[in-house]
Structures are given as structure tokens and as C-alpha cells.
Simulated scan of single mutants.
Amino acid sequence: MQGDQSREAAEERASSADVQGDESKDASDTAPNISDADALNILLEMKMKRRQKKPSLPSTVTELATEEGSKVYVVGTAHFSDSSKRDVVKTIQEVQPDVVVVELCQYRVSMLKMDERTLLKEAKEINLEKLQQAIKQNGLMSGLMQMLLLKVSAHITEQLGMAPGGEFREAFKEAGKVPFCKFHLGDRPIPVTFKRAIAALSFWQKVKLAWGLCFLSDPISKDDVEKCKQKDLLEQMMAEMIGEFPDLHRTIVSERDIYLTYMLKQAAKRTELPRISEAEPRRCVPSVVVGVVGMGHVPGIEKNWNTHLNIQEIMR
């Protein structure tokens, strides 16, 4: 009886570590007799075994490297695309990263835990209460800008019946399956972006932009989204509306390119391997990072990769 209970407990532990096939059987047989150090080593070995030396990656992935030897795989995505979600899943499974970085900030992190149905409902229900809350949190002009951008997103959501951020939710789920993988938010806080965007516009420019956002109604098909894999659909629509405002493009796109690059490079610092105790010496190795960003940010990240970055100027 006691032996059966031990085996059941071991099998549960092996299952929670996402061990498959024969690996699951071996782990369940040995788990009751191994030390914490051995368990950590098993997980590390499992991770390294799954990490492909020459990963087969989607064409939307750009590979970058740091001076310390860390590798960064940037997945360029369309925010309303099923194939982008598949690209993210495949990349994380192939490279088994130490860190996953996504183009989200703490103000938008809730979309990681909402299901598609809830997000679709939230995106379509833009009301006075939400407007008042946005203004209260971000000020009058920034709050209005936030709601207008939500309207653009809601328009795409309504046209496609697909909630935004699916690639980020897939990244979050897949990162949880990789042993010792950290999950980082890599985008500049949205209130900072809105504040700087509003400050870059004259009064009449604000009126003209708001007018264009308010009367957005062009139909969009799923084929249109997939055609935009070389340039994210949402960012392309915004670029068309803000094209005549260079300062606005700088604050919404170029500055965020710099911020995303900085966060990816920070994530790519050498990884400290797990230790059983404080007495154990530290072991640091080059990191493997997966970044998940809109396709429109990839050229800017490549451009800024080998430059010295100071983000203090773009955080005021």
C-alpha cells in the first residue's frame, strides 16, 4: 500500500515537471530517492536535451547575439494572427529559452490571463465609464488617446472576431512549460508613451488625429492580416494615420524600438544556474532569450542592437 502511494506521488511530481514518455516513467521511478540537487540537474539536463543546437525556426524570427555569447530570437508577429501564435509556440519549443520577453507593460498584463471570450467582450464594450477611468488614470488628453487607440483595436476585433494579444498569451503558456524560464514584460509603460505622444502634437494635430481614429470603419479580412506579416496590421493602420506627424511616429514607434531593444539586451545578460544553497558557488552561462514583438518593431530593434542605449531620455 505504501509503495503504491509513493509511486503515485512520484508520478504526480513527474507530470508537473512536464516530463513526457519514457522520461516521465524514469522520473516517477527515481523521484522518491533523489536529492534536490539531483532533481535540479535532471531538469537542467532535460531542458538542454530539448534545446535544439540548430533550431528549425519560422521565417518571422530574427536571430541576434550579445558580446557575452547570449542568443536572442526575436519573433516578429501580427497582433491578430493565428500563424503568429504558432510561430511563437514553435520558437519557444525549439530553443527552450531562459527568458521570454513580450511587448507588453504592466498596464496591459491583464490580457495574459483573460480568455478569448472575455477579451472580445472587453474590446467591444468601450463606454463612458471606461473613458472616465482612462482620463482619471492618465489625464484628459492621454486618456482620450488611450480610448481612441482602443477603438482602433476594437474595430479590428469586431471585423475579425479575434481578440488581440494571442501571441503573448501563447508565449506566457509556453514559457511556463520550460524549466527555469523567466517571463519579462518588455514594453515601455503605456502612460509614458501616451504622455510623450500628446506632448509631440499641436492642438490642431490632436484634433485631426482624433477625427481619423473616431471615424475608422474600413473593413478588414483575415487574409489582410496574414498579408501584413511583414508589417503588423495594427501598427500599419496607426502608421498610416500618424504618417504626417513625424514626432508622433517617433514617440509611438521609434522610442519604443529603443526601449524594447534595451529590455531584450538586459534579459540576455548571462544566466545564473539554479543553486541548492547559498554555499554553492555561482555558475553563470550565456542566456537564450525569445522576444515576442510586433513585426513593425523588428527593424528598429536590429538597428539599435549594437548601439549604446540610454532609456532615461525616453522615460520623461
Score class of each variant (00 low, 15 high):
residue 210 A to R: 09
residue 139 G to R: 00
residue 153 S to N: 10
residue 29 D to H: 11
residue 39 A to E: 15
residue 294 G to V: 01
residue 22 D to H: 04
residue 94 E to N: 05
residue 228 C to G: 07
residue 278 E to N: 13
residue 148 L to K: 14
residue 1 M to G: 14
residue 9 A to D: 13
residue 81 S to Q: 11
residue 73 Y to W: 06
residue 160 L to I: 01
residue 2 Q to A: 09
residue 310 N to Q: 08
residue 118 T to C: 06
residue 96 Q to I: 09
residue 2 Q to K: 13
residue 200 A to K: 09
residue 72 V to F: 05
residue 45 E to W: 05
residue 12 E to Y: 09
residue 3 G to T: 11
residue 299 P to F: 02
residue 213 L to Y: 05
residue 231 K to D: 13
residue 211 W to R: 10
residue 32 P to R: 08
residue 227 K to T: 10
residue 238 M to G: 01
residue 51 R to F: 03
residue 51 R to N: 06
residue 268 A to K: 05
residue 174 E to P: 00
residue 133 Q to F: 07
residue 118 T to P: 03
residue 210 A to N: 05
residue 228 C to I: 02
residue 279 A to M: 12
residue 24 S to L: 11
residue 204 W to M: 15
residue 218 D to T: 15
residue 30 T to R: 14
residue 160 L to D: 04
residue 155 H to K: 10
residue 83 S to P: 01
residue 84 S to N: 11
residue 213 L to W: 01
residue 125 E to T: 05
residue 208 K to I: 04
residue 280 E to T: 15
residue 279 A to T: 12
residue 126 I to Q: 13
residue 247 D to A: 15
residue 86 R to L: 13
residue 166 G to V: 10
residue 147 M to Y: 03
residue 101 V to A: 10
residue 2 Q to M: 05
residue 252 I to S: 07
residue 85 K to M: 15
residue 266 Q to G: 12
residue 297 H to D: 08
residue 77 T to P: 04
residue 108 R to F: 08
residue 127 N to P: 13
residue 109 V to R: 14
residue 58 P to C: 10
residue 32 P to F: 11
residue 175 A to F: 01
residue 113 K to F: 11
residue 257 D to N: 12
residue 180 F to M: 12
residue 14 A to G: 08
residue 292 V to H: 03
residue 220 I to Q: 13
residue 154 A to F: 04
residue 281 P to T: 13
residue 302 E to T: 11
residue 244 E to F: 07
residue 212 G to H: 08
residue 271 T to E: 08
residue 26 D to S: 01
residue 224 D to V: 10
residue 200 A to R: 08
residue 265 K to I: 10
residue 201 L to V: 07
residue 52 Q to H: 08
residue 314 I to D: 03
residue 164 P to G: 06
residue 305 W to I: 03
residue 100 V to C: 05
residue 132 Q to P: 12
residue 295 M to W: 00
residue 117 R to K: 15
residue 48 M to G: 14
residue 229 K to Q: 12
residue 137 Q to P: 00
residue 271 T to R: 14
residue 241 M to H: 13
residue 21 G to K: 04
residue 243 G to R: 07
residue 303 K to T: 12
residue 274 P to H: 15
residue 182 K to Q: 15
residue 60 T to W: 01
residue 172 F to T: 00
residue 241 M to W: 04
residue 131 L to C: 02
residue 50 R to V: 02
residue 16 S to Y: 03
residue 69 G to N: 07
residue 256 R to E: 02
residue 29 D to R: 10
residue 35 S to V: 07
residue 69 G to K: 06
residue 271 T to C: 06
residue 22 D to C: 02
residue 32 P to D: 09
residue 271 T to P: 02
residue 56 S to R: 08
residue 272 E to M: 15
residue 107 Y to T: 03
residue 90 K to L: 12
residue 114 M to P: 05
residue 308 H to Q: 15
residue 67 E to I: 04
residue 281 P to L: 12
residue 193 T to E: 03
residue 57 L to N: 07
